[in-house]
Amino acid sequence: MRVIVRTFSELCVTVGTLIVLFVVYVLFWTGVRADRAMDQQIDRLQDRWAEQSLATGGDGKGDGDAPLLARNVAPYDDGEPFAVMYIPRFGFTWNKPVLQGTATGTLKKGLGHYARTAQLGDMGNFAVAGHRRTYGDPFKDFPELRPGDAVVLTDGTTWFTYRIDRKPYRTLPGDIGVIDPVPRGSGYRGPGRYLTLTTCEPEWGHSHRLIAWAHLDATQPVEAGKPGALRR
């Protein structure tokens, strides 16, 4: 009898410890790992961009005469980073890599670009998903987005400044129309260069999704320096 009671209580203590460890893992350790992975992705991008600018002459003039939006638009490689996103509303130092695809493993290393949506800066809808909680909490402050907020991206050659057009919109997980070329529910009427951000809602749940829409406001080559939205 005593052995049974003792073993049972030991099991209870073990399960309790397991749960505490798991909570530590989800709340803390995934963040540590994701921050490291995201820094690594940004480093890789910057290395690649540095190589590219060397390869293309990098004399400061380059192909400056070429029209901005007729850039080289090779398809993005799945699971690879191709841009860095800055959202001043989330903090001045907030910057995250954007990777191609929305697979679970990809979203652990940064924000994920929906593979079938437009490319950065192109006509159509450039849609990006990100974690709201766990894995570094990239979109933790998502509900704070307000009309006029800047979402700035760079692909190493160009700065793209998008402007949020309305407060975050709450919808159901199956509402694929929100990442259409002309997003449903956004209030946009005609085709344009749009950006859609998606994350989960409520914060710790998965019953809904939170959506933010923006339109392309300005572009400038990286040689021209950071866009106004990122200057302090």
Binding site: V26, T102, L107, A129, H131, P173, V178, I179, C200, W204
Partner: peptide, 27 residues
């Protein structure tokens, strides 16, 4: 034991929780 949990068991168990569902196409 803690190492095995953090390295193998928890990464397997974590996607079963709802925090990973951030896309709109039900992936």
């Amino acid at each position: 034991v803690v190492y095995v949990l953090f390295q193998y068991v928890f990464p397997w168990a974590e996607p079963l929780l709802p925090f990973n569902d951030v896309t709109v196409d039900g992936q």
